[in-house]
Amino acid sequence: MTAAETDIRHQIVALLPRLRRFALTLAGSRDLADDVVQSACEKALGRLDQFMPGTRLDSWMFQIVRTTFIDHIRRQKRRQHDDLTPDLVESLPSDARIHEQTVARADLAVVRAEIGRLPDEQREVLALITVEGLSYQDAADMLGVPIGTIMSRLSRARRKLARALDAPPARPGHAEGLPQ
């Protein structure tokens, strides 16, 4: 392993928390997110020669995580597993000991659930830009669509999210959207 390769591997390790967060935002379940990140890392290591030094490693890795996730969903659909509902129960917080924490965490679980219900193309721009902090232009470059389309998707995603969160919960104290 060359010094440059060791260095890039260390940089990827440093990115792992963000890659996991990105995958979780897309996938809605930690187990699936970690599987996706693992496959994506294997792919990335197999084509390190395609990474252009001087360009952003995080964007490159996000791109690979995204395509890995999309491939996974396609495979799953082919196998007629139509249950793609994010694993919301898993994403619900565990070990909530104090009442106030429980409330705040339940709110966050509802946010995750509502983000999980956004259309895929809206959720991915929310994940890239709002959660991961990419610029509109960086996201447009990565996804290969015009910046206007990116901004339109992101604004629709966030207005939809705001409306969903403002709506009174169907069952108070119960995270909305949980599969029954």
Binding site: I12, L16, V37, C41, V111, L165
Partner: peptide, 24 residues
């Protein structure tokens, strides 16, 4: 709220298998 909803992932430990995969 979108950032807050996924903030905890950043501070939790990364599973060993992922680190091992990357470092070989």
């Amino acid at each position: 709220i979108s950032r807050a909803a996924f903030a905890d992932v950043l501070t939790e430990p990364v599973p060993d298998r992922l680190v091992d995969t990357v470092l070989g």
